[in-house]
């Protein structure tokens, strides 16, 4: 599904990722944990192709394609999805129109016909129910005036609509209360499938109580310094990150 080899990336001349290796197979959930500034969000942005995040070495293969050759939107259409830590507010652009344009773009890429307005409306309403988001949000501007929790649920809703192959959740748990956290986790768990993988980036073990990972990686100073099972998250919760950094 995803294979990252010796990835080096810089932002504004500062090297953030320094030789990262990661292999994610179909159906797996990988958690990436690590201290602030270790490069967790950068990894998400590099994978999604954000401008200003320059890969200087190494490669990324996604579903048999060279990911770095693809434009931002092409990566999304191929099935890569990044749930943002801070979803962007776009006043004046209706959420409904945004979602439909997005779903149609992915469907078109898959050789499927666009949905009619009525078909889409039904799908959108049903999906908004699954994430406990009032359908009235569909008519508002994209994330406009949404609370932190509503924005995150909107991200999960987009994920459900787009049915990606690889979902990267960038600190989706930050700023969420326990109820919202459960909604998000439930959404992710419902989406689990043999042909779908997840990379869950988080600071805290808490989210991993709800979304149980197959692997936990610790990212520090631009590299993965330790990999383990779900029990590693508990150990980190207890001991912090310092002992790992010292060990490296």
């Amino acid at each position: 599904m995803l294979s990252i080899t010796n990835l080096h990336a810089k932002v504004e001349d500062k090297e953030i990722l320094k030789g990262l290796n990661l292999k994610v197979n179909s159906g797996e959930i990988h958690a990436i944990m690590g201290p602030n500034g270790s490069g967790k969000s950068t990894l998400g942005y590099v994978l999604s192709g954000r401008n200003g995040y320059e890969v200087t070495q190494g490669g990324i293969e996604f579903s048999g394609k060279d990911l770095l050759d693809l434009e931002i939107e092409e990566r999304a259409r191929e099935g890569l999805f990044l749930a943002f830590q801070y979803p962007v507010e776009i006043p004046g652009v209706s959420n409904m129109e945004f979602l439909k344009t997005s779903v149609d773009a992915r469907r078109k890429h898959q050789g499927l016909p666009e949905l009619s307005a009525v078909e889409f409306m039904k799908l959108a309403r049903d999906t908004s129910k699954r994430v406990n988001l009032d359908a009235a949000f569909l008519k508002r501007g994209v994330n406009e005036g949404f609370s932190g929790g509503e924005k995150k649920r909107n991200e999960i809703m987009q994920m459900m609509l787009l049915e990606p192959k690889l979902c990267i959740l960038d600190e989706t748990d930050s700023g969420l209360d326990i109820d919202a956290l459960q909604v998000v986790a439930k959404g992710v768990n419902e989406m689990r499938a043999a042909d779908r993988s997840f990379i869950v980036v988080t600071h805290y073990q808490r989210l991993l109580d709800f979304i149980v990972p197959d692997f936990v990686h610790v990212l520090s100073n631009g590299r993965i310094v330790k990999t383990g099972g779900k029990e590693l998250a508990l150990e980190l919760e207890e001991k912090g990150y310092a002992w790992l950094e010292e060990a490296v």
């Binding site: 999604s48 931002i72 999304a76 999805f81 979803p87 992915r106 787009l162």
Partner: peptide, 12 residues
């Protein structure tokens, strides 16, 4: 905003 929309498969 542009990046956000593109990351959802919408062309630039």
């Amino acid at each position: 905003a542009l990046f956000y929309l593109q990351s959802r498969g919408i062309s630039e």
